[in-house]
Amino acid sequence: MQKRLLLNSKHFEITISRLCYQLIENHNDFSQSALIGLQPRGVFVARRIHRRLSEILNSEKILIGDLDITFHRDDYRRRDIILPSETKLNFSVDDRKVILIDDVLYTGRTIRAGMDALLDFVRAKKIELLTLVDRRYSRHLPIEPDYIGIQVDTILSEKVKVYWKETDGEDAAWLITEK
């Protein structure tokens, strides 16, 4: 197995900050917007973005939620069952601009499921997509992110793994090649 470091702890921090400033350009004070992290790994990105945005804007009112997409996956009954995680949306999505957030964008199937799951909570004004790592040239669906942390070119046998200080001890993104 070979590993290549994509983002170290310092770059990680810089990338999160840059994404926050890009978001502010489009969402101002976030009074009409909400961050929604996709379970299970997207919620880590969303929380980190939320924390940094709150610092930058000196606001405690930025809305954040967790969205589970298990019931909208297109591979139920085609692979081992995946158990659902919790959905936490303590606010109305209706007529808000929503930023869906995930750690790695690969085939786009998770995002498709995420959009369907989100639309079950009535009609968002607009849905945007933020991803920490974008694996280019590997999409199965016509889905492209609006905000990208880092872009990498990968092949099928490679994997991108994101580690978090909160659960793994350090922030890092690795490209892993199985031999």
């Binding site: 298990t70 019931f71 909208h72 158990l83 919790e86 959905t87 369907d116 639309l119 079950d120 009535v122």
Partner: peptide, 27 residues
Amino acid sequence: ELILSTADNFKDVLNRPVKKIPSLRDV
């Protein structure tokens, strides 16, 4: 315990504005 914890997620679904999910659409 698996059935009870999975039911937690469905209870959440039943309290959403749209109470239907597509999982068993080919069953």
